[in-house]
Each structure stands twice: as structure tokens, then as C-alpha cells.
Write a protein that binds this DNA or RNA. Structure first.
Lengths: 112, 112
DNA sequence: CGGTATCCGTTAAGATACTG
DNA sequence: CAGTATCTTAACGGATACCG
């Protein structure tokens, strides 16, 4: 079925940052560029495959910039674009909300 | 594999409102209770199955309240709980961001 | 009106091994 | 170090038909 146009801003935003990892990846980049390996260690539980896949999508959506340094050993740094930084700011209240209610949310999840 | 604890607030929040529909459903309820059929018509493109499934999950997470009126024909109203209202507020900046950048996001999506 | 039940294809996600 | 490749499972999303 043909994709419908976005119904609202939230629809568009969720399309870009939705899923299990993207918001957390953007979050990790808020304080400057990070290398692939740093991100992998920070994002506990992510597989290399998912990390690179999500980074590629974020790059295609112009939220993240990928800079390759031609060195040995190889070095690649990921950073927020200006566009990505604005999205990150819009995610702050959501992150705060989650932080504030984390105990409740964990408890509900544990309850099944 | 056993689920890890939430890594940050954003992780917990996305777990509750992530997916294609939940943010939009919460959004629709911001101005008061709505009936099942109203929501179905508002959320263009959603199937009845997805709508009821997402509503049940939102109810289980105490974000949405379900009120059944024993009438003929049947009437059920969904509304935000206090908890759901606070999440909705945290989503406002994200919705604004999406609205502001909608044209750009649509264009990227069209480009494939 | 407000759902259920069933079936089905697609996408997300994860484990593991391997490469330039 | 920063990825690729392959395979498998789980979750998401949708179509259709039916029910109280």
C-alpha cells in the first residue's frame, strides 16, 4: 500500500527517531563526536549490525554526520548535524519524562 | 535473552510510546475523551486490529483510561490518565519539531 | 458500535562468524 | 577498528470475516 503523507508533526518525528535505538544514539552524540566502538560500548545490548544499520539510516536522514579518517587503524567518527541537534533538543522533555517516571515504568514492565 | 534495565529516560519513554501509532493516539486524546470510532476515523490508515491493540497496551501502561457505557448501541470512551497527560506534554516539542521540518522530512522520504 | 479471530507478509532485531 | 555476511526468531502491521 502507498504510504500516506504524514498526518501530523509527531507522525513525521516518530518516523525519523522511532524504533528501539535511534533516540538513544542521538542522545549519546549530544556532547560531541563519538567513534563506532565508543557507541557500541555505550549502547549496552546493541549488536554491531543494528548499530551500523541505525547509523546509516540516521545519516541518510541527515541527522548524523559520518567522518572517515584514513588512518591505520581505521577511525570513523559520528556526530550530530545541525538538524540532528535540533531533534535532540526536542527529545529532552521526553527523556526527562522517562527519567522521572522510570521506577513506575520498570515496575509495570516487570508486572508483565 | 533477558531484557536489560532501561539505560536512560529516553529508553523507557520510547518503550512506552514507540511504534507507529501510540504517540498519535495520545495526541488525539489531548482535548478530551474520544470514542473508538472517532479515533479510527481520525487515525487515517490504522486498522481496527492495530487500534484496539495499541489502546489495550496504553491502558495496561496506565496512560489511557477506558470507560464502557452499557448502552445500546455500545459506547466506549478513551481518555488520557493523569500519567498519560504528562507524557503528552513531553511529546509537544517533538510534535512541534516534526511539524516545523515536515517538508524536509517528506522530501527525504520521497527521495527514498 | 465496538470489538474478535485468523491468516499472512514485512520489518525489526539478535547471534554468530568473518573481513579489510 | 570498523565494519560485512548470513541466518534465525520475534514483533509489527495489515486484510478479511465474523460476533454480541
Amino acid at each position: 500500500m502507498a504510504r500516506l503523507p504524514y498526518a501530523c508533526g509527531l507522525d513525521a518525528a516518530v518516523d525519523l527517531m522511532g524504533g528501539k535505538w535511534k533516540a538513544r544514539i542521538l542522545w549519546q552524540l549530544h556532547d560531541g563526536p563519538h567513534r563506532f566502538g565508543e557507541l557500541r560500548r555505550s549502547l549496552t545490548g546493541i549488536s554491531e549490525k543494528m548499530l551500523i544499520q541505525q547509523l546509516r539510516e540516521l545519516e541518510a536522514d541527515e541527522l548524523v554526520h559520518r567522518e572517515v579518517y584514513r588512518e591505520v587503524p581505521p577511525k570513523v567518527e559520528y556526530s550530530l548535524t545541525g538538524f540532528g541537534a535540533t531533534l535532540n533538543e526536542a527529545l529532552v522533555p521526553l527523556g526527562d519524562w522517562g527519567h522521572e517516571h522510570m521506577a513506575r515504568i520498570e515496575a509495570r514492565r516487570a508486572a508483565g
